[in-house]
């Protein structure tokens, strides 16, 4: 019997006109792990996320969740299947309160006002955002907005969570809180794919890392192996450092 993989992208590609933003990338994610996705600016990390949640249609390749292809589904269906995501450029529902933001996403799992409120409050408490619940989302500072992104995604009860640079722009104290939150999400049994620029974050929490550049895979492996990989150093720092 062949075990059905939890989540897998197979040879995915995305072409924007003459540009191959993602070119034949493949990887598998095991349940319960934190899977890091790194690469220099413009290497295609966010595009991969947009392909996974079907915001962009694939040019070629396939994406498989629980053994079933999710290619061609709508973005909202991806969420219902159990794949949540956050946005690098945060998208708070500005003129709603923090609580209302989270309730709007909780409604993807429950139907009544009372249930949605309960689920939202639990999730806010889990993400340490409860004190901000009545503030307008637009009044939150960037750390709060990033946290709201995670909270909202968590309220959809995902099995797989895509985190897109949730640590960017945070100060060291906020960074530690973010790392702590991501670890606690993993401890809840949620599998995480994380895109991150800050090496402190990605190296300390990832179980495995997949490095890409120009839309193509460079290497994949344990954090320390990837950090010492010649091509990865080249991609980040230039050839002379390799």
């Amino acid at each position: 019997m062949i075990a059905v993989s939890f989540f897998e992208v197979r040879e995915i590609s995305k072409r924007f006109g003459g540009l191959m933003a993602v070119n034949g990338v493949s990887f598998q994610v095991e349940p319960g792990e934190i899977f890091g996705l790194i690469g220099p600016n413009g290497s295609g990390k966010t595009t991969i996320f947009n392909l996974i949640n079907q915001y962009y249609p694939l040019t070629s390749g396939d994406i498989v969740f629980h053994g079933k292809s999710i290619k061609g589904l709508k973005t909202y269906q991806i969420c219902h299947l159990g794949i949540g995501r956050t946005f690098q450029v945060v998208k708070p529902l500005k003129r709603m309160t923090v609580l209302e933001n989270v309730m709007a996403s909780a409604f993807s799992r429950v139907n009544t006002f009372g249930e949605a409120r309960k689920l939202a409050m639990e999730t806010l408490a889990f993400c340490n955002l409860l004190p901000e619940q009545d503030k307008a989302a637009k009044s939150l500072p960037i750390a709060g907005r990033k946290r709201l992104e995670i909270t909202r995604a968590m309220a959809t009860k995902p099995e797989l969570l895509l985190l897109d640079e949730t640590a960017a722009g945070l100060n060291p104290g906020e960074l530690d809180e973010a790392i702590d939150l991501i670890k606690r999400i993993r401890d809840r049994g949620v599998t995480i794919i994380i895109v991150e620029h800050i090496m402190k974050v990605i190296m300390s929490i990832s179980d495995r890392i997949h490095a890409i550049n120009y839309g193509q895979t460079i290497t994949e492996g344990k954090p320390e192996d990837v950090a010492n990989n010649k091509e990865v150093i080249e991609a980040y720092l230039g050839e002379s450092y390799a």
Partner: peptide
């Protein structure tokens, strides 16, 4: 909630499972 979410940000709404 869905109506207001759509008004505020359609992409975010869609990613939160709203058709």
């Amino acid at each position: 909630f869905y109506f207001i979410s759509i008004r505020e940000d359609q992409d975010a709404a869609e990613s939160l499972g709203i058709n």
